[in-house]
Amino acid sequence: MEKELLRIEHLKKGYGTNDVINDLSLTVRKGEVIVVIGPSGCGKSTLLRCVNALEDIQGGQILLDGEPVRKNAPNISRMREKIGMVFQSYDLFPHRTILDNITLAPMKVQKRKKAEVEQEALELLDRVGLKDRKDDYPRQLSGGQKQRVAIVRALCMHPEILLLDEITAALDPEMVREVLDVVLSLAKAGSTMMIVTHEMAFAKAIADRVIFLENGQIVEESSDPKAFFERPETERARQFLHTFDYESD
């Protein structure tokens, strides 16, 4: 078994009296792909945002390689280098070309050489089929292309873990596939990922472990995705998965 990479202990996150995440604990091992599913408002996106310290937390702790990840902590920029994140709205920097979008952080944050970063960026772009678009601006790309660039941008920082927050939710249906294929190939290559998604077939195909979240708590956890999607153990998960079926009842 691979070594433990991320450990979330008794995480508590809330706004005022409203708890979004309530005493959640979870560990992620290196190379593992965790898929988090659940009804909207269950706290799954908030969970990812907490792991990247974009939210302050009210209790518990998050450790990456044994080091705490916490918003406004002095080490936070260094910690975030190790945690890549891709958002639903593929927020590329509109004033920079595709290549500049990818190379900006490696050069400014990691102080890497321009030539070396560019070469890596081009290789990655080639892998997602967008090498010829390197000098375009984000607005010239389709949603699916932008999302692939956003993934490359995160990868170029060599993160230890990649957080994908509903990365296909804003895409036209015909573009979903091209993005998910990229993620599948990353999983095959052994990347550690935490994925929030509504694409159940994709979840089933990629997950090493499925987490079903509701009201900020883990309701069901399964290391056998196929079994989970066919015969969930809890009634809540069964009801949730049922909403994706269209048989008349």
């Binding site: 974009l54 280098e81 945690i83 927020d91 920097f93 900006l104 400014k108 944050v109 956003a150």
Partner: peptide, 25 residues
């Protein structure tokens, strides 16, 4: 706001994010 967040999620300090991402826009 998400522009600042994506800059920070790439490990940029608030100052770097302001200088290279927020200010030009």
């Amino acid at each position: 706001k998400i522009q600042e967040e994506s800059a920070q999620s790439l490990g940029m300090t608030p100052l770097l994010a302001f200088r290279h991402v927020i200010l030009p826009q």
